[in-house]
Design a protein around this nucleic acid. Structure first.
Lengths: 227, 227
DNA sequence: TAGTTCGCACCTAGGTGAAAATAT
DNA sequence: ATATTTTCACCTAGGTGCGAACTA
């Protein structure tokens, strides 16, 4: 995923559908991005692979992207597909725009949080998400990505150009256009799918929890590991 | 003010600064638009005046524009200038986009509401603002406007073109450009000002009310009556 | 030399009034 | 006649990867 000083969107964006919430309860929905491991990576062109190359850079200030529809009722959240397309990534450690701060050439795991509103609680953009009974955190391994300041892999570049409407100007004209199916076929690592994760699957999930029936589906946004 | 089926922004937009709120209390800020009188108007070109011409059309469905930063703390509201620039007006009585529905060729009074969050209360976009001790409603006579589907007055057209960035394409090139002061000067009825209205000024204002010290200033958005 | 930054052309998305077409 | 609707050129605002310049 490309990161810049000014902040760059993720593409594709995380999109999530939630069910099983208490329709009348108020929730925040938020996203953050945590390091996948303790390594720094480099892309080895001749083998077309990311290789570990030393230890991770020093930690960056923690940031949380609170979905702009927050605070909203369970009913509201469940009625829509929740898209994180306005979230931005930056490599500027002094960023004051509330963007998520990451190091380039590292691997990251995005997470989605569903946070039940406690009385008086205020969700901060610059502090870690409160962990407790009222918070459910979900990660999808399919969405792990590698940060770069310039694409290392021509397949990824082509994928971005072909799928992102804002990159239309770089597409091959006419003849090379593909339908979604052919496109998907041509990228072995690109696995769009509809995945469903029940809270029953979550380690430490408590019986009798109000949120037990909540499930989250990733609809579209599966990001190849080497992105 | 031009109204269309699809919805059209107000220009200039209402902009408001609030002080005197309880920093920790949660508030909605909202705007609505009420009929100024019971008349329908027509513009008489030779006298350059709006004249009453019959009774108002039948009432339209009530709509409230809840400011997108709602719900927020008094501290948050007071820290910023609150702009209503994304509010849209429509003449479509069947509108389902949440726009404010008005009749063309009528006079209207915009109002700003500051609504203290009561427990469990949900603010509706399609129902009148709840009137009670937790709600303060303010109207500024300077912001009264007349709705049209096409401008009736060449001065207004020029004003809109000169001030609205989105109408830049219609401006006279170079030589006719004016600075703000000259522009303001040239419109006798255009009175930008900084007005401050204390809640003490409001009829029925109660002593000891938590909100008593709140004041609201209109910063920029004064709209001529004949707009 | 590998990684980053910056200006840019080229898009999407959507807010303007003009003018022609249509409605009342 | 007068008012409204529709389409359009021309903007603002901002999301793309490219490629040259820069950096360590």
């Amino acid at each position: 995923m490309i990161i810049t000083k000014a902040g760059r969107r993720m593409f594709p964006a995380m999109r999530v559908k939630i069910s099983g919430l208490d329709p009348r309860q108020q929730y925040y929905v938020a996203m953050d991005v945590i390091p996948l491991d303790n390594k720094r990576y480099r892309y080895v062109y001749h083998s077309s692979k990311w290789m570990a190359a030393g230890n991770a850079d020093s930690p960056v200030p923690p940031r949380v992207y609170v979905h702009p529809d927050s605070l909203a009722s369970g009913e509201t959240w469940m009625r829509q597909v929740i898209s994180f397309d306005k979230l931005k990534l930056t490599n500027n450690e002094l960023d004051d725009q509330g963007h998520i701060i990451l190091h380039s050439m590292h691997k990251y795991q995005p997470r989605v949080h569903v946070i039940q509103k406690e009385r008086g609680e205020e969700l901060s953009h610059v502090r870690a998400v409160p962990q407790g009974d009222g918070t459910r955190t979900l990660s999808f391994p399919e969405t792990v990505f590698t940060t770069v300041t310039a694409y290392q892999n021509q397949q990824i570049t082509k994928l971005k150009i072909d799928r992102n409407p804002f990159a239309k100007g770089f597409r091959d004209s006419g003849r090379n256009r593909m339908g979604l199916e052919a496109l998907v076929e041509s990228y072995g690592f690109w696995r769009p799918s509809l995945r469903s994760l029940m809270f029953e699957d979550i380690p430490g999930m408590k019986q009798g929890d109000k949120l037990m029936l909540m499930s989250i589906m990733i609809l579209v946004s599966l990001t190849p590991v080497c992105l």
